[in-house]
């Protein structure tokens, strides 16, 4: 009987293991870091399932494949389908018009609608409401995948995978870059804050000329505030500039965020290929699945399905690129 060995217990590895197990395959997982935690970059994600919004600055597969993610996740963890609200400061209204021109699947909303959707948002005359988008709590999602897999009998080894294994699926993200030389790291910085006096129920994006700033409610007055995108591979610390920009975005949404407590500061590198789209590559007995970039939760389901198609049925999905190495 074939045993599939998945290396890496981040969102890519766990999604692949979950998909393989769902199709009846026998799976084991190797990760020297142990269960999902702060050592993996998917721990620090926003958890927005927002293919329509992401299409503003991404290629077509993100929109199409991303839409499959909503159902996939809803079958495995708690998903809130409350849509996404996109707003801009009055001076950045040209950015809102541009965003609207590049996307679809939204309703245009004005002051009263915004007040009805999110009573704690003030001072925004215009916005876009993406009705069908959703969000999840990434840590809870990882936790749910991990425990469901354990219940299904999947063994997790807290050690590096032995060299001599066959039928390996390498989901190590940036750690696989010695084999995937066109992989790069894109720095992302985020904050987790607590501000019980403000209630936002759905992800809110504030358009900004340089980065997509967003705030995602985690419940109990906790919010995730993200995320910078910097072409840098220095993942040690957040810069003062990034922190200022993130916090001033929150402050612009509601000055009450000035009273928030800063619970966590996250910095990590997203693994990305040059076109910022994920890839599946087979080399000998090893399949590499990598490059989820800023779309970890959005594209992991499609990536996992592509891996399972290739591994179990030898079917080549669009993410499989012919390996010229």
């Amino acid at each position: 009987m074939t045993v599939w060995s998945v290396i890496g217990a981040g969102v890519a590895g766990l999604a692949v293991a979950s998909e393989l197990a769902a199709r009846g395959a026998t799976v084991q997982v190797f990760d020297p870091g142990g269960p999902p935690g702060p050592h993996g970059c998917s721990w620090w994600a926003g958890g927005m399932l927002a293919p329509w919004c992401e299409f503003e600055n991404a290629e077509e597969p993100v929109l199409r494949l991303g839409q499959q993610a909503l159902g996939w996740w809803a079958a495995r963890t708690k998903v809130d389908r409350l849509g996404t609200l996109v707003v801009a400061n009055a001076r950045d209204l040209p950015d809102l018009r541009r965003f609207a021109r590049r996307t679809h699947g939204f309703q245009e909303v004005v002051t009263d609608d915004i007040a009805q959707l999110e009573p704690d948002l003030h001072g925004f005359g215009k916005g876009l409401f993406f009705t069908d988008e959703a969000h999840l709590d990434p840590r809870r999602a990882l936790h749910d995948l991990y425990h469901t897999l354990k219940k299904q009998g999947v063994v997790f080894h807290k050690v590096p995978a032995p060299e001599a294994l066959d039928n390996v699926i390498d989901c190590r993200g940036l750690h696989a870059r010695e084999s995937l030389t066109d992989l790069r790291g894109v720095k992302g910085e985020m904050l987790v804050i607590r501000c019980p006096e403000i209630t936002l129920t759905r992800p809110v994006r504030l358009l900004h000329p340089r980065m997509p700033l967003y705030i995602v409610p985690r419940g109990d007055g906790v919010y995730m505030l993200g995320a910078t995108m910097i072409e840098s591979e220095d993942s040690d610390r957040i810069t003062a500039r990034s922190m200022l920009e993130l916090l001033s975005a929150a402050y612009a949404l509601n000055p009450g965020f000035g009273e928030a407590e800063v619970l966590e500061i996250g910095v990590d590198l997203r693994p990305a290929f040059p076109d910022n789209l994920p890839r599946i590559r087979r080399r000998g007995g090893r399949i590499y699945a990598n490059g989820l970039y800023r779309h970890g939760y959005l594209l992991a389901p499609a990536l996992a399905q592509g891996v399972a198609d290739l591994a179990l049925e030898n079917k080549h999905s669009e993410m499989v690129d012919e390996d010229r190495a």
């Binding site: 790069r184 790291g185 910097i230 072409e231 840098s232 591979e233 220095d234």
Partner: peptide, 13 residues
């Protein structure tokens, strides 16, 4: 200044 730090794949590109 914006894209600074060590190990610059982007600069190499």
């Amino acid at each position: 200044r914006r894209e600074s730090g060590a190990g610059q794949t982007f600069w190499k590109m």
